[in-house]
């Protein structure tokens, strides 16, 4: 009995994974093709995100302060000396939540600037990030 149930689970899982890989993989390829063409026309992305667009007074934090916010439910990251609370943004990240979650509580500058080793972020992404700024590193 349990063997049959397990066999069913494994088959459903394999089909589900196959579906995700094929559907997502095709879209990913399409995105990559389109981003190559848009990159050539767009201006060179900045390496430094636009900071201080909000008028609210920003606090300064130590890296130790930031490291206390290392959970999915409470995720701060550091990018080029700016401290960002990305907790509520994680689920909206087009490249997948995981890409941000892995940096929670740490310095994500390199990850952000190199898009995890796959290029660089768009101006739109820089702007989205700027909204999340809560302070700077001491």
């Amino acid at each position: 009995m349990i063997k049959k149930v397990l066999a069913g689970c494994i088959i459903i899982y394999a089909l589900f994974m196959g579906f995700v890989v094929i559907k997502g993989g095709l879209k990913d390829q399409k995105n990559e093709n389109s981003s190559v063409s848009s990159n050539t026309s767009a201006s060179k992305p900045q390496t430094q995100p636009t900071t201080g667009t909000s008028s609210a007074a920003k606090k300064s934090y130590t890296l130790a302060d930031v490291s206390k916010h290392a959970a999915t439910s409470d995720c701060w990251i550091v990018i080029s000396s700016g401290v960002y609370d990305v907790t509520n943004y994680v689920d909206q990240h087009p490249g997948g939540a995981r890409e941000i979650l892995r940096y929670c509580g740490t310095d994500a500058t390199i990850g952000f600037n190199t898009k995890g080793g796959r290029g660089s972020h768009s101006n739109q992404a820089q702007a989205a990030l700027a909204d999340l700024l809560i302070g700077t590193i001491k």
Partner: peptide
């Protein structure tokens, strides 16, 4: 979130 993000996961 997106098909691509699931694929990357």
């Amino acid at each position: 979130i997106s098909d691509v993000s699931a694929f990357k996961f």
